[in-house]
Simulated scan of single mutants.
Amino acid sequence: MKYKNILGVLGVLGVVTALSGCTTVADVLGADSATLNLNAAQSYNQMLNEAKQKQILDTSSATYKKVNRVFVKMRSHADALNTTGHQFDWQVAVIKSKEINAYVAPGGKVVFYTGIVETLKLTDDEVAAIMGHEMVHALEEHSKNKVGAQALTDLAVSYGAKYVGQSAGGYGGLLLDMGAKYGVGLPFSRNLESRADKGGLMLMAKAGYNPNAAVTLWQKMNAINSSGNNPLMKFTSTHPSNNDRIAGLQKLMPEAMALYKPRK
């Protein structure tokens, strides 16, 4: 029975991938931006409540202060790039977890796990590289490309919870569900990842963060990935290879450096 279920999931994935090739799944389903943003905000607030109950919402550590400091400095620059026709209520949450991950939900709801900052020993500039990347995902509404996959991810989350058990660290279904629904990470999204890399690089430069930190960030990711002993690495699991990413960012560096003015 388990293998039949897996084959069913793969079949749905194939259909979703085919749909995304000819038109956005969001258009097929009639999912407008306002509805996506509202639903994401509701899920985000539920996730926050669950994180508070589990006592894993970080609001005071040095890691939280670093992430929030970068978030505040980049928010106005992100707003200046918003062409969606909908004002974003930008928010950032920091979750206490060893997992190396970050993601964004529609409408500007950013989530960082402490593991990505602490394990990689990220500088403010490197945090800005991730923040810019996630902000661009939201600004370009990349989650619209995943709307059709939500049925699949809902099934995968419930199915995975049965067989994986405590793989999410016991943090609860909503924490897992938010990342699965809104974190852009299916294989067909690699082009979106490249767009977020480029847009995020330019955004961090405009906000006064050194674009070269985007390269050092992925070099750190590479070092951890190459160790072959990192089950908590989620941020790069279905993304372009780190080496391809680094090469792409290096090609874009002259353009980014032309926008860069060191922050005061």
Rank of each mutant, 00 (worst) to 15 (best):
L7C: 07
G11A: 09
G14P: 07
V16R: 01
T17F: 09
T17N: 06
T17Y: 03
T23F: 01
V25P: 14
D27N: 09
V28Y: 05
L29E: 08
G30C: 08
G30F: 01
A31E: 12
T35E: 09
L38S: 15
N39P: 01
A40P: 07
A40V: 05
S43P: 03
S43D: 14
N49C: 04
A51G: 03
K52V: 06
K52S: 10
S60R: 01
Y64S: 03
K65Q: 04
K66G: 10
V67C: 10
R69S: 11
V72G: 09
V72R: 13
H77L: 03
H77C: 02
D79C: 11
A80G: 10
N82G: 10
T84G: 01
D89P: 12
A93D: 04
K98C: 05
I100N: 00
V104Q: 02
G108C: 01
V110W: 01
F112N: 13
V117M: 01
L120N: 00
K121A: 04
L122E: 11
L122H: 04
D125W: 13
A128M: 03
A128S: 07
G132T: 09
H133L: 09
H137Y: 05
H137T: 09
H142Y: 06
G148H: 04
G148K: 05
Y159K: 01
G165V: 02
G172F: 00
G179H: 04
A180I: 13
K181I: 11
G183H: 09
L186H: 12
S189D: 11
R195T: 08
A196R: 00
G200T: 09
L201W: 05
M204T: 15
G208T: 04
Y209P: 11
P211L: 04
T216R: 02
S227K: 11
P231K: 12
K234I: 03
T236V: 15
S237V: 08
S237T: 13
P240C: 07
S241N: 12
D244Q: 15
D244C: 11
I246T: 06
A247S: 13
G248C: 13
L249W: 10
Q250L: 02
Q250W: 02
M253F: 08
M253E: 12
E255K: 14
A258I: 08
L259N: 12
L259R: 14
K261Q: 12
P262A: 08
